[in-house]
Nucleic acid binder design. Structure first.
Lengths: 253, 253
DNA sequence: CAGTGGTCTAGACCACGGT
DNA sequence: CCGTGGTCTAGACCACTGA
């Protein structure tokens, strides 16, 4: 009975720190406001910089903060809802999409993709690269893989590569009747090329959306879309209308 | 011209390390095999332990590794596909679901939830807690919020709380005609209670699936499901049949 | 250029799991 | 009890941004 209430759970410092900071963000900071730099913050809380960073990392992961090298740490706006085509789906080229085709090449499919498409390992496929922008900032980078067999009528009129070619392939695809599609969402980290498109550092957390498109009893195409996990909330809407609003969040003056 | 090809991109050590380890996992390790401990690995690669850990953390985030305190680091099996009811949806109580009700209480809705349900801030709602298990391991923890108004005929026969009560509320909900539903997926970090259900440490990365259920022109219920991001790939199947298989992955002997 | 976040080091101690 | 991963420290240097 000598000791008075030995804390059974010595909460990690960075965890407690995260809580404190989170509450401060709600009550004392406006969206877009810049925080004190890491060295000052660490000193203010009496912890090492590495410990403070552990807390900031979590908050960034949760979309509460945005950090940029050479600039500083700012309070992030609430995540934006990004619609991921639902409702029976449509081809990736469908009108009204927010994607911008960047390039298209005829290359060997990565092993992973070849397996899903049920193709030989190094069968050439059209590989379309495109980006998606929402509210003025990049939110996703996507690779669409289309086996040559899926678009047999593709003419050689257009350039063999480049954005024009990408649009041509998607147009051909659109002529097939879509029998269904399939989606999977998982956590990943951005590859170097995707990171550049998304204006993030390599390794940044992303939500990877893999979609299979079925036509003529086969898998006619596969797309792998990489969404910024820090700024995006993927929405799959069956019911239209109301938007989900998150977080308190005042606006910066 | 004194310098010969100054490397324009000095790749971070942990990034290179991650690549090397990733390739080693593909070629030299079997699923379930345990890796050398962190101190040995760090020494072997000639880096500080913190740097090695940065690489391991990323690999764990990608679902390639599993680390457990007091035990060690093991090679993770490919992520399991976890179906998130698609196809026009159904009530959370629908038969054949893999959820196990744990508890039910009548409490004030969190601000966040109250907003989505369009209720006054501290309006009492039935709060059901349930867990989902797949392949013998916990994959998700969920909170279902049901306004009292959505289940007016709920009798007081059953206990006022506990799993029986949870089932009773879900049963009542099932009697309403579901007009539609709405889903959002985003990245989060596990709260302490969810972490315990999921057998992870607090702060572990999770995929948060927020679903709104509509009936009688209103939002009749909201569920917030927290999936382990390291072990799960959420699937939204429109087309049945084939499974997506990932990764090389031999089995441990 | 100065100031920011990003990387890295070489230690230390702690909490947990199994023996 | 020992060995594991988890937390934490106090430094250092680098890469990038913007003035």
């Amino acid at each position: 009975m000598g000791t008075t209430q030995l804390e059974t759970v010595p909460e990690p410092k960075y965890w407690h720190l995260k809580t404190v900071l989170s509450e401060a963000l709600d009550s004392e900071f406006a969206v877009g406001e810049i925080l004190p730099n890491e060295r000052d913050l660490a000193a203010r809380f009496g912890v090492a910089r590495a410990t403070l960073r552990q807390a900031l990392e979590q908050l960034e992961l949760e979309g509460r903060l945005q950090r940029r090298r050479g600039v500083g740490t700012t309070v992030a706006p609430p995540r934006m809802g990004v619609a991921v085509e639902s409702d029976r789906g449509s081809w990736p080229g469908a009108a009204g999409e927010a994607w911008q085709a960047v390039d298209c090449e005829l290359t060997a499919a990565p092993a992973e993709v070849a397996r899903v498409l049920e193709l030989p390992a190094d069968e050439p496929v059209h590989t379309i690269r495109r980006n998606r922008v929402s509210n003025g900032q990049p939110v996703a980078a996507e690779l669409v893989y289309v086996p040559a067999a899926s678009v047999p009528d593709l003419t050689a009129i257009d350039a063999p590569s480049g954005p024009a070619r990408a649009r041509a392939v998607l147009r051909e695809l659109d002529r097939l009747s879509l029998e269904g599609q399939d989606r999977a969402v998982e956590l990943g980290s951005a590859r170097a090329d995707d990171a550049k498109s998304l204006d993030r550092l390599p390794g940044a957390p992303v939500l990877v959306v893999t979609t299979r498109f079925f036509a003529a009893g086969r898998t006619a195409a596969v797309s792998v879309a990489t969404y910024r996990a820090d700024t995006c909330r993927l929405t799959f809407g069956d019911a239209g209308g109301v938007e989900i609003h998150h977080g308190p969040g005042r606006q910066a003056s």
